[in-house]
């Protein structure tokens, strides 16, 4: 199949700004974007830089943005994302500096993974033989263990775009993998650490990492698991935990969300007044304040029963 690869070329040492170059390629039916790029490098332009190794979605080297979304180039079939003759835009991963062309500097990625202490820390004397763990307990973790450290999720994370201190999807999915491992002995210390600023509560639940992860790790869902574990373990003083609890309480009471009540419960009375006054006053003059007296739905008692039944 014929297609055009429009590739972002950039050598920070010699170029002031990036440029885009177009390369026509002709690929077999099941050709991948990586096949196309290697063909370009072999036959058209030997100066094109990219990373790859396994060519089978295992090593995690070839993440890049393809038509604006982070993907493994070796797992992306050209015929799946373009019709014959169409142009495909290929750029390096986002949220990281570019070393050259499609090669991104992953220092930030590795620093964050290291920061969550991605290794088992058992406490107490080691058993004489191996640790024994139930199948169920390990099965839960396999989703997170599937991570191949490709960086795609970090590339497209919308919080990292505005705040590079956020621990980010890959590291927090890794955090889940250890905090929920029955052999680990530092669960409480881990939860305390992960609930701090730049940790689990800073995720904006945008689903970007769930969408782009090539291995089904769904980092955001892992982050939500750590949030639940943290709240259950009693780390419920953070604004995020208070917000989640207040939200659930309000819906439990009336079946519906009441934004005024939510603000009061999340911030506390005085802080809510202070934080929201500017917003509230403007809303008042525009006749759009949420109703002050929130009425429950007629079947609210059934809803309350449902909450109680599920322990919330």
């Amino acid at each position: 199949m014929r297609a055009t690869l429009r590739v972002r070329r950039y050598d920070p040492e010699t170029q002031p700004t990036p440029t885009y170059k177009e390369y026509p390629v002709d690929l077999p039916q099941y050709g991948t974007v990586l096949d196309g790029l290697l063909d370009v490098r072999d036959r058209q332009d030997g100066t094109l830089s990219l990373r790859c190794s396994c060519r089978s979605a295992i090593c995690g080297s070839c993440s890049m943005r393809i038509n604006g979304e982070a993907r493994l180039a070796c797992k992306t079939l050209v015929n799946k994302i373009a019709s014959p003759g169409e142009t495909i835009t290929v750029e390096p991963m986002g949220n990281m500096p570019v070393i050259k062309d499609l090669v991104a500097d992953m220092t930030l990625f590795w620093d964050k993974v290291r920061a969550v202490e991605p290794y088992l820390q058992p406490v107490g004397p080691a058993p004489e033989r191996e640790y024994l763990v139930s199948n169920e307990a390990m099965e839960r973790l396999t989703v997170a263990m599937n991570c191949i450290m490709c960086g795609a999720c970090v590339s497209d994370c919308t919080v990292l775009e505005v705040d590079k201190t956020f621990l980010g999807p890959a590291a927090l999915a890794k955090a889940y993998r250890f905090v929920d491992d029955p052999r680990d002995g530092r669960k409480m210390e881990r939860l305390e650490k992960y609930t701090q600023t730049s940790g689990i509560w800073d995720c904006t639940r945008c689903n970007m990492c769930v969408q782009v992860c090539p291995k089904g790790v769904a980092p955001m869902e892992r982050i939500m698991q750590v949030r639940s574990m943290a709240m259950e373990a009693g780390f419920n003083k953070t604004r995020g935990a208070r917000h989640a609890s207040a939200f659930a309480e309000i819906v439990k009471e009336s079946g519906r969300l009441d934004e005024m009540g939510l603000a009061l419960k999340t911030y506390g009375f005085f802080k809510a007044g202070f934080t929201l006054t500017g917003i509230g006053l403007r809303a008042f003059f525009r006749n759009k304040l949420p109703p002050l007296f929130h009425r429950p739905i007629a079947t609210a008692e059934n809803v309350r029963r449902l909450f109680r039944r599920l322990g919330v």
Partner: peptide
């Protein structure tokens, strides 16, 4: 008589709920 969907927030407490 439908309720709030949970808006992704109640799921932080319990997905089953």
């Amino acid at each position: 008589q439908a309720t709030c969907t949970g808006a992704g927030v109640i799921g932080e407490r319990s997905e089953e709920l």
